[in-house]
Design a protein around this nucleic acid. Structure first.
Lengths: 243, 243
DNA sequence: GCAAAAGTGTTTCTCATACACCCATGT
DNA sequence: ACATGGGTGTATGAGAAACACTTTTGC
């Protein structure tokens, strides 16, 4: 039998707040009391169904726009989750029924990751609780969303090895310490400050501004910006392969 | 409106035949003459619908098994294609009708790539024409399959930078020249023979066998094998990022 | 003046790159 | 003997890694 299924998108929205890496979670509640059994609210990634006339990238952008009011967010598809049993847990079944879906029909979801500097956006209410949670403190999520989050982190790490995604997590103007922290958090590692700076110095597309931090109780740091044009012009073709 | 759609998988099957990199294509013909209008056969990637009780990885493995009778093939999901208009070309619509599908309902397809040494498998007939085509000579394919093929090649190239996928395209025992050719074809580049060999020498998981090529009209080459165990033990954690 | 983070230089070692000739085999 | 691909070494330069102290600011 050919499969017909619902299609949804789930977005792993990562935000860096100049301190740590956070992921955006939404509380899952029953909208109306379809059933009497107690339904403890829990948390999910941000996601939604794909509409009839929408491509999946549009759907993911819509989800982000609805949450943040911002549409210039770095977004990328990373994996699709379609296991036949992915939403068969009792709680997931109750929830599917409550929003009028056939709980036995499969839901195929396409996972996206989004990167942004938390300062850039302010969350909108949208009738549901939304919160930033440090990636390292995420507990059990609803559906198969822990698995989706883990896959996203691996995909981001891989992509970051070759593409300047770190800047997407920073504001326009940033310090080298912030840049280093972003990479340290993504790779879950510590880098040597001097060596990191030597490396960044070689990147012509990281440009020192005529401006420093203000109001900090220590020596103010130089501010930098990222130039995508210079990046595109000067990036090397990487012909190297594994070690 | 929530979208309900058909789900399929398409496999970009790459095979290396000790000469060049080929992709497996299947001829698209109308199975029965549902309509009178002439339908010129053309070529597609290998794919199929996902069955009701199947996960997508199983469906992709089934496609490969049906074609090759072989089930130990390296296979990986790389991208999902879901544009609402992806199968709206007249020929695609004729074809969808001919196999009893609602031509206006969306078909979401999950793209997989598979890597194998052509020597390992012999293609099965399956009632349709199947052929290996050099990747560089692939012409216009049916559906959006040129786009899927291009995406697969990019994904493979990216993955190959960090993971020892090249060996999947070679037989158990291979020469260093064959290994080099695989990487040259994937990266569409030429490497220096001496430098390539120095690099491979450092890979402890590429193991020289007590065996040489036979029957070649020149100095017979040393044969090597890949050891996944040693690879897993000795691989470095790559903390590096972009240049 | 003190707490806090910014910023800076040298040495060592590994690896990338560039490059040209002799070797073993089949015919 | 010759054609064919197999196999090898050295010199140079770039960058990765390891490591500790001085500077500038707010309070």
């Amino acid at each position: 039998m050919k499969l017909s299924s619902y299609i949804s998108v789930d977005c792993v929205v990562l935000g860096y707040d100049s301190e740590q890496l956070n992921v955006l979670l939404v509380e899952r509640k029953l909208d109306d009391k379809v059933n009497d059994s107690p339904f403890e609210p829990d948390w999910t990634l941000t996601g939604n169904h794909v509409y009839l006339d929408e491509d999946i990238e549009e759907a993911a952008n819509r989800v982000l726009y609805d949450l943040t009011g911002f549409s210039e967010i770095y977004l990328e598809q990373f994996k699709t989750f379609a296991a036949p049993d992915r939403l068969l847990k009792p709680k997931d079944q109750v929830w599917l029924k409550s929003i009028g879906m056939d709980p036995l029909k499969r839901v195929v979801t396409i996972g996206f990751f989004a990167l942004l500097a938390t300062q850039k956006v302010s969350l909108k209410w949208m009738g549901r609780n939304v919160k930033w949670t440090p990636v390292k403190e995420v507990g059990d999520l609803a559906f198969d969303h822990n698995q989706i989050l883990d896959s996203a982190l691996i995909a981001i790490r891989n992509k970051m090895r070759h593409e300047p995604l770190g800047f997407e997590l920073l504001p326009e103007k940033f310090t080298l310490t912030q840049l280093q922290q972003v990479y340290e958090q993504i790779f879950d590692a510590k880098f040597d400050k001097r060596n990191f700076r030597k490396k960044v110095n070689r990147m012509q597309y990281v440009i020192a501004l005529d401006e420093k931090q203000k109001g900090v109780p220590h020596k103010p740091a130089q501010l930098y910006k990222f130039s995508r044009e210079i990046y595109e012009q000067t990036k090397r073709e990487l012909l190297e392969f594994f070690v």
